[in-house]
């Protein structure tokens, strides 16, 4: 029986949350396809029993580990050679990896070596009835368009998915599973590239990616000063300020706040889009938010198609009124 693979993302020796998100999705696809899920982990030291248990609980039937000190920091050559060898030993039907700086580097490399297709930044994955092909959906440029892509004749079918696009499995899948140690031959991890230095900057304070509430501003605010009620509201409710690409390009706010294809994908409980028209690139980054509020003066703005509630009017004015009303609430 053919497998669906997830390639693990790690930070240091810890498994990154995006791994569990992909395991959740892979598990769902596997149920539909009647296949099993395997996780490939390239890491510098053997993980703890608890890590293994978490991976099984998260949806894996099998965990393949390749342990070598060269995996401490990501290096293209060793990664793609080891993964290629793993694939050739037991070719999977599907390989999924997080669209992180490393995932977006080794996945194309691996696809090139395997002579197969790869779809970047998928926002939807499904199995086609009948053929069992993986349907990979991603936003395409030029309006509100989603493209569904298949890899009809090549295997494995490969896709990257941005962190926060899917959710981890809601239940415990299993407690135990098969652990396979992949022997790392020295010639596989030989590399001319040398890491001279690594400066850890951490992943910063709570950014948009982990925020529970995001209040995001766009060009509809017209002027940088009009961001003021957004900051005010964010302070009151402990929310995080987000931004469309245009206002980041206009230097109203730093790139770390950008939501969308060229920024972060977010999945907060509440997303408030203020003066954002809803270009497909932006939608792609926030559509999986639990509850979406759109505020825009143009009632035909695309953002309203993706919102749960929409307020038609000037965003600055509406937010100012909201802040005033909430201040009254605080005083009460």
């Amino acid at each position: 029986m053919s497998e669906i693979w997830v390639i693990a993302e790690k930070r240091g020796t810890q498994i990154h949350s995006s791994t569990y998100e992909l395991l959740g999705k892979a598990r769902e696809l596997a149920w539909k396809r009647g296949s099993s899920v395997a996780l490939a982990l390239l890491i510098q030291e053997r993980p703890t029993e608890e890590t293994f248990r978490n991976l099984f609980r998260g949806g894996a039937d099998r965990v393949m580990i390749a342990v070598d000190k060269s995996f401490e920091r990501f290096d293209f050559g060793p990664y793609i050679r080891v993964l290629k060898e793993m694939v050739s030993q037991r070719p999977p039907e599907v390989i999924l990896a997080p669209a992180t700086t490393s995932g977006r580097t080794y996945m194309p490399g691996l696809a090139a070596l395997l002579g197969t297709g790869l779809t970047a930044d998928c926002t939807g994955l499904d199995i086609e009835e009948g053929t069992g092909n993986l349907l990979q959906t991603r936003p395409a440029i030029g309006g509100n368009i989603m493209a569904t892509i298949k890899t009809p004749k090549h295997r494995p079918q490969m896709a990257t998915v941005r962190p926060k696009t899917f959710s981890p499995l809601g239940e415990v899948y299993r407690e135990r599973g098969e652990i396979v140690d992949f022997p790392v031959r020295p010639e596989l991890v030989e590399s001319p590239a040398r890491l001279l230095k690594f400066d850890s900057i951490g992943e910063g304070e709570k950014g948009v990616q982990d925020a529970e509430i995001i209040i995001a501003g766009g060009m509809g605010l017209r002027r940088m000063e009009n961001m003021a009620p957004i900051y005010k509201l964010a302070r009151m409710i402990n929310g995080t300020v987000g931004a469309s690409r245009k206002i980041v390009d206009s230097k109203w706010i730093g790139h770390e706040a950008q939501v969308g294809l060229s920024g972060h994908t977010v999945k907060p409980k509440i997303y408030i889009a203020a003066g954002i028209s809803g270009a497909v690139q932006h939608i792609a980054g926030m559509q999986t938010s639990e509850f979406i509020v759109a505020i825009n003066r143009d009632r035909n703005a695309a953002i309203f198609n993706f919102a749960d509630i929409g307020l038609i009017g000037d965003a600055t004015e509406i937010l100012t009124q909201l802040v005033e009303a909430m201040e009254l609430e605080v005083r009460k």
Binding site: G115, L135, A140, N144, I145, M146, T148, I149, K150, K153
Partner: peptide, 13 residues
Amino acid sequence: PTRVVKINTPKLS
């Protein structure tokens, strides 16, 4: 290897 098989304007989700 890849084929775009469908283009759609996301329906009112």
